[in-house]
Design a binder for these strands. Sequence first.
DNA 1: GCAAAAGTGTTAACTTTACACCCATGT
DNA 2: ACATGGGTGTAAAGTTAACACTTTTGC
Lengths: 224, 224
Amino acid sequence: MVQSVFSIDCVIFGFDGESIRVLLIERAEEPFIHDLAIPGDLVQPNEDLEPAAYSVLRSLTGLKNIYMEQLYTFGKVNRHPLGRIITVAYYALVHIDSITPKPSSFAKRIDWYPLNDLPPNLAFDHEEILNKAIERLRRKVQIQPIGFELLPSKFTLSQLRKLYEAILDVEMDKRNFRRKILKTNLIQPTDEKQKNVAHKAARYYTFDKEKYTELSARGYRFEI
Amino acid sequence: MVQSVFSIDCVIFGFDGESIRVLLIERAEEPFIHDLAIPGDLVQPNEDLEPAAYSVLRSLTGLKNIYMEQLYTFGKVNRHPLGRIITVAYYALVHIDSITPKPSSFAKRIDWYPLNDLPPNLAFDHEEILNKAIERLRRKVQIQPIGFELLPSKFTLSQLRKLYEAILDVEMDKRNFRRKILKTNLIQPTDEKQKNVAHKAARYYTFDKEKYTELSARGYRFEI
DNA sequence: GCAAAAGTGTTAACTTTACACCCATGT
DNA sequence: ACATGGGTGTAAAGTTAACACTTTTGC
């Protein structure tokens, strides 16, 4: 049988309240040693793709139960200098605050980089992968309520709006945004408000995931 | 190095004027001999993924210059009874009339099956692949003008409407559809009309691909 | 002359956009 | 008291949805 090697790579997005950021590692091995790269790993013959991606995620962030979705498969013959390695790329959305990224065997340093100021010269074809992931995030966030995966479970409507503004790179009207997002009934107010802020305290809201799942099954399509 | 085997599969869609159809082969080999399957092939170590998919397409349909896009990668450990074979699935849209599908080494019979009456018991996980392709086609057709890839280069507005109705499984108002699609300015009337039809002859239109490419580059987003 | 699909406008309902002021809180 | 961001309503413009009759053609 014709044999090849394959790997997974996982683009990890977070939101710092201002910008979308992506987690990149400094490679600890050749090839591209010391260059920045999207975290990834080879896949074992007895290992499914998704679990392999989750295990990379967990080793870097310690998190389980993370939103993750397959992005695209990159298979150019010469994309890897050591031979034919096809990579299945995933992207994940995490609450940036619940993570202290820890270096691991394959990652010397690991850090968040804002999308609007990305470092040049990523290893392999990782710039292409990253661009594809950004494009997908932009499209997806408009038709599925995945933005919440980037926020704490309780968030203010301003945080949510700023998240959309950061992803889509547009300005949104405060009142119109509020009306539109509340009209979905997927966002529930809590009794809590911000504390120790030098202005009127904003109310915290939560995303009603169960309601969305149910509506979704009945044909409802989220749109922002 | 850890080795695995790679294949591509290609879901080929056509439109017969009534229904969307998909091209399936009857397998000429074990495993799943005599079962229906999505056409595909193993990928050689020195072969890029897309060309591999195009070559399957060409061997079955004789066509080049076909709309094709990567769909998803299916990699469950046990999806193939003979060992670990990961498959990268593509989907293609063709003008059904310009094809006379010809059997080949791996395809005993080859035929079009309408989406609303698909055969059961496809080989491997091909039902899952096909379902994913249908879902993708449905979504994509609403945000990119790819429907034209399924029609002859000259088509009537009724043909176009019936195409959308078949893909989306909805009824559309003739007048509203006409107004909406013409407002994009991407559809140009020709001087030709239908001949030998037992009713008022409909005008033929063409899709202005260059205009779309140009508008697209300036940020225009098609929507139906 | 009949059957079949083409072609054509208007109105009401709804959605989107633009826009400005007062409120609560910490310093 | 001031600086900061929270919270709120309305009107105009634009979009979508619903709906019926006349025209052309082959038989």
